[in-house]
Design a protein around this nucleic acid. Structure first.
Lengths: 127, 127
DNA sequence: ATAAATCTACGAATGTATTCGTACAATGCA
DNA sequence: TGCATTGTACGAATACATTCGTAGATTTAT
């Protein structure tokens, strides 16, 4: 039996995690700059969020120089996995396929994406 | 341009919505009974939640008799759609196909489900 | 008719997310 | 050197979700 870990980043934390997953090592300012491309936010707000994420163990930070360097501690795949599973249960009564169809019906994937998914499905079937 | 509506039920509200989507017309007790099959909750807690949902316009209620009758006001499809889209953006950087693969890789769909999805994909391609 | 059960309304406590102001230290530059 | 800039720490305000106790009305059963 594996140890149960609660992976439950808030929405703001997820925004930041996505940036950290992308860019590996970031200062608060790095993150803040990306964040404010989309929406308004004060610098100390971003700072505070990242400090809280550190308390929670979502990120690690290197404090050896004045400007701290952050990186994600939680695994991208595992986190995504966890969140998708929760949504399947919470919103789709446990039916993965229903969610998949809902996602594809709406979100207009490109032909390449659709082909990739088909390929993936074939691989799954032949295992 | 369509009117922008914020669909953002909380987790508890989603639990209740799922019950209402399933059973159409419910009393608080009906909902409460289903709810407490899984977890602990006081009756007035469920009541309060449903009252708040009413304030928010998530549900309608018939108060003509002492025991009120509730039904969902928000559409199941639309709500699911909205939540899936948000997750794709929040967690998968906007890539629907990534989420789909994550969902299928984990949540072990049955052969029937996989076939249904393939069929669905073919239909999408041929449109 | 009276007591028990069932229901709604309401307020309050608790927990957590989010936002930002202020203080103060370190750094960079004129 | 002295001032502006950039950074962290911290506390506090606000908002919202969640939980439940209590009061009072209505219904049901004895």
């Amino acid at each position: 039996m594996t140890t149960e870990i609660e992976i439950k980043p808030t929405e703001s934390e997820l925004e930041i995690l996505q940036i950290l997953w992308e860019k590996k090592r970031c200062t608060v300012r790095d993150v803040h700059e990306v964040l404010t491309q989309n929406r308004e936010a004060g610098y100390t707000t971003t700072l505070k969020l990242m400090q809280i994420m550190h308390e929670k163990g979502l990120v690690a930070r290197d404090t050896s120089s004045k400007t701290h360097i952050y990186k994600a501690l939680v695994n991208q795949q595992r986190t995504q996995q966890h969140l998708v599973s929760r949504m399947i249960n919470n919103v789709f009564n446990g039916s993965a396929s229903r969610m998949v169809m809902q996602a594809l019906g709406n979100h207009k994937a490109s032909k390449e994406e659709l082909d990739a998914i088909k390929q993936y499905l074939d691989d799954l079937s032949n295992k």
